[in-house]
Amino acid sequence: MLEFMVRRTLNAILVLWLVVTGMFFLLRLAPGSPVNSLPPAVAADPLARAAYEAEHGLDQNIFIQYFDYLFGLLRGDLGTSLYDGTSVMSQIASHLPVSLELGGLAALLAMVPGFLLGCWTATRRGSWSDGAVRVVTVLSFSVPAYWLAVLSLVFIGQRYPDMLPTAGGFVRFTEDPIANLKVMLLPALVLGLSTFALVVRSIRAALIDVLSFDYVAFATAMGMPQRQMMKRIAIRNAIIPTLTVVGVLLGGLVSGTVLVESVFQIPGLGQLMVTAFLRQDYPLALGCSVFTAMIFLGLNLVVDALYFVVDPRTRTSTQRRTAPVMA
């Protein structure tokens, strides 16, 4: 198990490196330059331009810049923003918690009710309530998130304006938890809706599968009450295939924050990243990408580790694999 997790972690680090390298060169190769987004007085004056480029090391060989960046990254130094000279790390530190809150809230609102509803409909297969849930879930994941975001902005925002984090009026959780949750609720619901629907569908499918297995029939034949059977046997085994889906869905939530933050004007990492890219603020854009990739990979590692918790077979099978080596 330990060996497996170490391998997975090394894998994640390799992927992270590939992301950094890819993003670094793609940004530099893209047409345009950060200088263009500077005030016209600087942007139009060749001398001022050169001075600016020299100051930020943009005139150096691209590979030297690359290795500079990489070594800085290893020391935890993400550089400074080309736009306003602030430290990239401090920018991320102020925006990341907002995104984590949004993503976490969306995950919570999607996974918990999704799980419960999925279990409930699986035991009621073919009934009208199962059919109703099916219609709702199909609608939920076929509605595009951006459309839903704009729609809720227009309709709900008009009627209940204090549900919206209108520009500049965003309150942090640490300042006023109630007001913060109020404005986060709508974006989190929009972000989590399709995840919710897919959780319902996948746990339902997995449970229906498991309910047809021999071990459920034996427990029923032994007179085990349905509730106990669901808890001890059916759900326990149905969670395993669902976990894979959950891993993918969590990744979807991470990328979904970019869109939802832009539409709802939430000052999170996603919004920061979009602005950074628009301004061709290389260090900030890269820093945001690195963090997004880290969250993504970190979540996958957590899901991998969860397999060991919910499926004891994986524990024994890796033991078995290592046993002959030690013998």
């Binding site: 071990y215 034996f218 046997i233 919910v310 004891p312």
Partner: peptide
């Protein structure tokens, strides 16, 4: 296959 595979 008649005992739950994930419980001792």
């Amino acid at each position: 296959t008649s005992l739950s595979p994930t419980t001792p």
